[in-house]
Design a protein around this nucleic acid. Structure first.
Lengths: 350, 350
DNA sequence: CATGGCCTCGACAACGATGTCATAACGAGG
DNA sequence: CCTCGTTATGACATCGTTGTCGAGGCCATG
């Protein structure tokens, strides 16, 4: 005789209950069940209890998607969120703020990563449209969002993050990229630097161009010629930034201060500075804050964006649009903030 | 006369097209449209083209949710993912790996943050069930998952991450927490330490308990009494960890090596070490890798988990279950890895 | 030319829910 | 006792899609 008690029991698989089952068990019509679940008026307390009991007994969960098919306004109670990558902390913060604001309204969030790939942007949007999301919040990559015109004219609520849309009119929530970069420039100038350099991200990314513009314009205003200032771009990962910085710093007349336009570029630059042993002599200001920046040697001065703030604002806007707000689209600017931590306050050699 | 060209034009809002519209425009029946879209056989090439043209012209997108209502197996092509917080990098990595694997199959991911709140866990699961997700991947917080028994017996695919479920049998993908912690202990012992300390997370978190166990057992094996070894727990954020470490290090007979059981605890400890100026004299090994750990002074030795690996494996398992795999549930262990970077190789004072 | 088989294709019901509307029950007012 | 308004309730159509099934057209075979 073998004992079977420790064998895996494939579970029974009773059909998932529907309103009909609940109605039958409670001895009422399905419409009454619907009324109870949706808290509609016109159900006696006794009936309500019977229905609730049946729901509990069957462990019934309303099928939101089936409901949305018929429901007025056809709300699916879901929105699509397109981010650079869900694994990057900046995106994560935005995602989190969005989740909290929308979750409170019973709206679920589909999140997806774009990886700077315009094709992917379109494919994901198509997938989300197929799910009939109530709204779209996205950090656009494609040069142009004209392909969204059909949806736009169907009044699909959309909010653009990080960059204003091209080809459709819609709300946008952005960081003051050029202003932030100008602050970085002003800060380095104020600390006495005249030999500056710019290390930047891919030039097809609008925010990268804005940052470059802000940085260079501010320097120009100070009367320092920008035509000879080293501007190294299209650095999209840590290692290419590191190598660019190494080369730059090993050149004949190296800069005494560097502005890096993005997180990974900042990391690469930090590595280069450290490898050459000049991390305490060459000034650095990076765009984007990061964890432990204050624990580095020296602490890294940054232009911090406020992703939670961006997320909260975007959530507000998409909710307002979903609720029918039809004001003219606006762009909301979230100010960046210079956080001095040491690396940006290094003064040029005398 | 005022010009209106720059005024906002609220867009027209033609109804979203359905298969019926496509069918009418193409001059075919709706079933034929369905066949074309789903690549079913039995449609002549000519008809196919007509339908595809109509789809393009109307900018039609199949309504996946409506389809899932009728489709065999009722797949909604969505899964729910419950993470500690979408804003934490560890969760982000898992999310990303999941998104990639499931996205390739046309499955969308609902992600939500638990914040270590058992109530939230239940609420979010209820919300996901209401959306009829095809599967659930979760990092459980609640002591017990017995409340999921009804779903489990309805064969809802589930995969648990980070911790084996209690109360239901299901696949789990976990890090070898106790083994990893033991490695940390062994590493510190091998470097000559005998005065060690443990700084840990909340004791109601299973992984935290595992790590403590692994750490203390390994030390016990080496013949060092663990009863007097400082074990400070329930440190759940950076600042409480910092304060605990400060106190510990200022005590009469401070440890020469510290093991911190989690990211935030590690950060707090690093701060304390630095504040006291002993970061180059007291050894530290932290559980969980983090960005720029190698750039700290000294580099921080960690027991790294592999969240991408965990994500990939979880995605594989949930897909297999969705595809009908009905083997007995298993627990998959993803090995952690000790990465020496300096802080863990500091030797005790002679 | 009749027959049968294959290929295309569409009518129809159904999925699980909700909006509409009709009806039953009941007490109030005449 | 009839009428009326109010409240509680359910029958039914419907949302957009897919599964089932049968109809019709065409071609090859005998």
């Amino acid at each position: 005789m073998t004992t079977m008690s420790d064998r895996y029991q494939p579970p029974l698989s009773p059909a998932r209950p529907t309103m009909r089952h609940v109605a039958a068990l409670a001895g009422v019509g399905i419409k009454t069940v619907s009324r109870v679940i949706n808290d509609e008026a016109g159900v006696s307390e006794a009936t309500r209890q019977k229905v609730l009991d049946a729901i509990g007994q069957l462990n019934y969960h309303l099928d939101v998607t089936a409901g949305s098919l018929r429901r007025a306004g056809r709300r699916t109670l879901s929105v699509g969120l397109l981010l650079p990558s869900v694994s990057n902390p900046f995106s994560g913060e935005i995602h989190r703020a969005m989740e909290d604001a929308l979750g409170a309204r019973g709206i679920a969030v589909f999140a997806a990563s774009l990886d700077d790939d315009p094709q992917r942007e379109k494919a994901i949007i198509a997938a989300f449209l197929g799910r009939r999301v109530d709204g779209l919040v996205l950090t656009p990559i494609a040069k142009n969002q004209a392909y969204m015109i059909p949806e736009h004219s169907r009044n699909l609520p959309m909010v653009f993050i990080d960059r204003e849309p091209v080809g459709v009119e819609a709300d946008a929530v952005v960081t003051d990229n050029s202003v932030g970069a100008a602050k970085a420039a002003a800060h380095l100038l104020a600390n006495g630097h005249t030999k500056l350099a710019y290390l930047g991200d891919r030039t097809d990314i609008q925010t990268a161009r804005e940052r470059r513009r802000g940085f260079l314009e501010e320097i120009g205003k100070a009367g320092i010629p920008t035509s000879t200032l080293p501007v190294i771009e299209n650095l999209h990962d840590e290692d290419s930034a590191r190598r660019a910085a190494l080369e730059l710093l090993s050149s004949e007349d190296p800069p005494t201060a560097i502005f890096s336009s993005q997180n990974l570029v900042t990391f690469g630059t930090m590595r280069a500075l450290k490898e050459l042993g000049v991390h305490k002599r060459v000034a650095l200001v990076g765009f984007d804050d990061f964890t432990l920046a204050d624990m580095m040697e020296p602490g890294v001065t940054v232009i911090a964006q406020h992703p939670e703030r961006i997320g909260v604002l975007s959530a507000e806007r998409i909710l307002a649009r979903i609720d029918g707000d039809d004001q003219a689209p606006r762009t909301y600017v979230v100010p960046s903030e210079l956080i001095p931590r040491g690396s940006g306050e290094i003064r040029p050699p005398a």
